[in-house]
Amino acid sequence: MSETAAVNVGQAAASRVVKPPRLVPKSLIVGGAIVGMFLALAVIGPYITPYPFDKFHFGSRLAPPSADFWWGTDRYGRDIFSRVIHGTSLTVFMAGTGTIIGVSFGLLIGLFSGYVGGWIDEILMRLTDIAMSFPGLLLAMLVVAALGSNEINAVLSIGIVFTPKVARVVRSATLGLRHIQFVEAAEVRGETNSFIIFREILPNIWPPIIVETCIRLSYAVLLVVALSYLGLGAQPPAPDWGLMIAKERAFLVTGPWVVLAPAAAIVSLIIGVNLLGDGMREWLAARKTADE
């Protein structure tokens, strides 16, 4: 009796050692919470702000933070709190869309290039080499310069900058599965290329794609705010964070809040996305070792 109990306890202990509980990393939770908060603000923000983002209050220009204007006002007396909250949807939407465009095209090119191989792969990879010989921000600037400075072209430029980088990551993940048995089995069965690429390979390379998407997202936020800071993204009077810093810089000394508020928003969003990415990478790596 006591012997079997001891064995049971031993088995329970052994199984606990073999299969540790899958802890979700703290950074994933914190990062997810921050990003989730910004997403929520992006959706409901415009409905909860005390003032419209472009309403002038000429009586209180450059007013310091107060009960009426929580984060103060800018040189036209516009409420900074309302502008920053309104700007959330703009930044989140631009960064998100740019990332989705870059990851989608990069995914298609990477899967195709890695699976088909041969001279097509060679040509596509040389093209990505060329596109990646520009520092990301400069390529984005060049694209926006060619297409014109506005939100949509800034988003497109981010997609163009990201496509070759994502394609590289996806291609090398695809190459790792190229000669694995279940892929070759599908080839022997006579499955079409698109079936093999999307139904056999794609479901097995999600972890690196997810991690890469998180990394891209944080760069996308940086690119969005940088482009609008340089005057190549959203145009006035849009309540864009980068643009607010660029336009209100002259009042940095008399009213530091005009720059500090959008700066705080930018930094906390990027920290959130970075934490999310780090946590995601850690979590997926832990899951992988647990599965093996």
């Binding site: 705010v225 810093i245 700066a263 930094v267 970075n274």
Partner: peptide, 12 residues
């Protein structure tokens, strides 16, 4: 923090 703060923010 270093990777999360764009140069124009830290510069300002």
């Amino acid at each position: 923090t270093g990777v999360s703060v764009p140069a124009f923010v830290s510069g300002s």
